[in-house]
Design a protein around this nucleic acid. Structure first.
Lengths: 220, 220, 220, 220
DNA sequence: AATGAATGAGTATTCATTCAT
DNA sequence: GATGAATGAATACTCATTCAT
């Protein structure tokens, strides 16, 4: 039920000394579970305390406010959602090897994000819900995206456009269409119809094929 | 800011005699606006009352509970989101005219939903947020989708597959990929980057092209 | 279920012209029923209106306040509870006929009050409950008792003491003991154990005998 | 005004460890006082909080609901009202000493209950008022009476009937008449006319005499 | 560090009452 | 006379947060 890896990573992100109090783990686990089920606003701190098996006051020893607790969950996730594009050598790797194709790139992306979504589902749900209501989260996200991700993504798209692998639509549009399709797959897979029988291997390949065909340069 | 048409339609859905008390309109307008900004759980009835310019008690004369008020906003929207597929002669129209292509169908769909999204944005936001937290909304939505929409959509997809216009992937996958792309466009357009300069005509055409190419039958 | 006679008498007491609007009857019936079940404070006017089948406002056309409605039920009852002792010729009748005994008096009293309790139970319940909480009711009751009943009762007791039929205890004590026993019988009969099988004839005779023996003058 | 002994006993009944928070005492004192004056339904929790000198939330930390608070007052009283009859050796004591008379029994009862009523008046008032409106209280009372008191009382009455000390009326009737007279005395003394000058010693003896004579076996 | 009692502002909802129709 | 929409104060209860232990 609980996903200890996920929580451990959250804790590492929060407490660089690695001093993870046992109570703190319990609080985070409880918060993630309830926030993702009922939403931040509809969750009470006393509920979290009860599920975590700690006193109400203990939460506030570790997190100044309820919102602090939320942010301590959401902020590390923020970066991890975009993580693949933030690695320093990410673009370099894509470029340097001449026989890397756009398809390889998309396949890498889709599989990587599939694993990430699978592992971090509850936190991602919280993130998706709360970004709509908290300006700070939006700001943080935009900052990271604009400063660290945007340029790299553009570079990649333009690289493959120059190589003639994909259509010459405006890069913004290419990015929108491809990301949208990737996210749409994950969303359907994990949130809309998580209980349906999925042949994940096949579905991923079909999604890749759809993107590739959709973005293929018209040979004319 | 307020979208009177949208509210009027809500009221018509609620009160078939068209007896729209002025206060009731104000309450709905206020509720839609605040719910969509802050979310249902984070919105207080006193806030709604203040913005609507009515006494707090007045809200409860028209809606038994706060949740009732939410449902009176969401339920009519539920059907309208799926409306195009619920029209009786919808499938017939698609089929009967032999020169109707899959592209015509997608273009109709995408333009129609674009207009709908543009007009009903706040309510759609509420709907998207709250469907995650309220079992009843999910149930209602599933019921409508399964009973009224699913079969028709399958019929259409299979029709065009038989005509050889689109690829022979499982219809479920075809539906997922196309709907995902349409929704992804609207989501980016109206929610993620509503303030960006959009050349909507062009962007719609590009989206259609992407879907068409992505689903095109491999000629081999 | 409803006791129309009881209500009619209430109405007569309230409206000397006998103009009993149909709605007014319904309101009183509803109020008596709900007040006696749940108590005045726990009953809402909207509940009364609903049960009476009238609009909320209609109650306040006939009774200025909710308390007014209560008083219009309780006040006439006030006098009727003590009615036998208020009749002008009550004492005279007891005295004038030389062969009237104390036992006759007690028997008359006990039977008369038994019939009264049987017929007016719900109103009496209201009266008993609310006299504890409303100073006005207490004041009214004391006034009537002191001005109209006390002296007569004393006169009767002293009359039979002089005749040597009953013990020479202080009249206050005699009154307390006899009234207490009469009321105690009715209370057990109608409120504590109303559903038990009662042989009322026998039980009344036993009660009379108990009072008679308890108050008999010691022959010595 | 407040009766600390009474409250202390309530607290002991509620908290067997004797850990009586000071605030909790204040809350109970305030609740007893206001409930007994205005009745449960007409008393607001904010009023109790104010009189107790605590925050409104504090009440709900100790008692889940307002009704819980009422029950925590009424339930211990329930048993104490019937306490004399619940002692294990109660009947034995009455029987074993051959020269114990019915009069001794009644005198013991009447004096004991007089002291009890004197000490617990406000709580008894609450009990008497609220038993009329709360099914749970009635059920609890009936259960205790039927299981613990009824049989013993019958045994005592039948014992003295066999000894020829009291009349051969049905025991139910004997019980009704005697209890009614005892309660009637207390009711008049403490509730109807608490402010009158009472010669309690004398009045108690007169009441005992009335019961004894009323129930005496006719010698014939 | 951890507790949990205490707080008082805030919550959804109900209430008795008014008044235009 | 009767209605019922409208009110705003009041209600029981919850909340995030504080702080003495």
């Amino acid at each position: 039920m609980s996903q200890p890896d996920m929580i451990k990573e959250l804790l590492l992100a929060q407490d660089q000394d690695g001093k993870l109090s046992e109570k703190q783990v319990k609080i985070l686990e409880a918060a993630v579970e309830i926030f993702s089920e009922k939403g931040y606003a509809a969750t009470s701190t006393s509920e979290i305390a009860k599920k975590a098996g700690v006193a109400e006051g203990t939460i506030f020893r570790h997190y100044k406010t309820k919102k602090d607790l939320l942010m301590s969950i959401v902020t590390p996730t923020l970066t991890k959602v975009l993580a693949p594009f933030m690695a320093r050598d990410f673009v370099k790797k894509v470029f340097e090897n001449d026989h890397n194709s756009f398809e390889d790139f998309i396949r890498l992306l889709i599989k990587n994000r599939y694993e990430f979504a699978k592992k971090n589902l509850p936190i991602i749900k919280i993130f998706l819900q709360e970004i709509a209501f908290h300006e700070e989260i939006r700001e943080q996200y935009k900052a990271i995206f604009n400063e660290q991700v945007k340029k790299k993504f553009f570079a990649i798209i333009e690289h493959f456009q120059e190589k003639g692998e994909i259509t010459d639509l405006p890069p913004t549009t290419v990015i929108r269409l491809s990301i949208t399709t990737v996210i749409g797959h994950l969303f359907t897979r994990f949130i809309v119809l998580p209980n349906q029988d999925w042949d994940d291997e096949a579905e991923i390949e079909r999604t890749i094929e759809y993107i590739m065909k959709g973005l293929r340069k018209d040979e004319r």
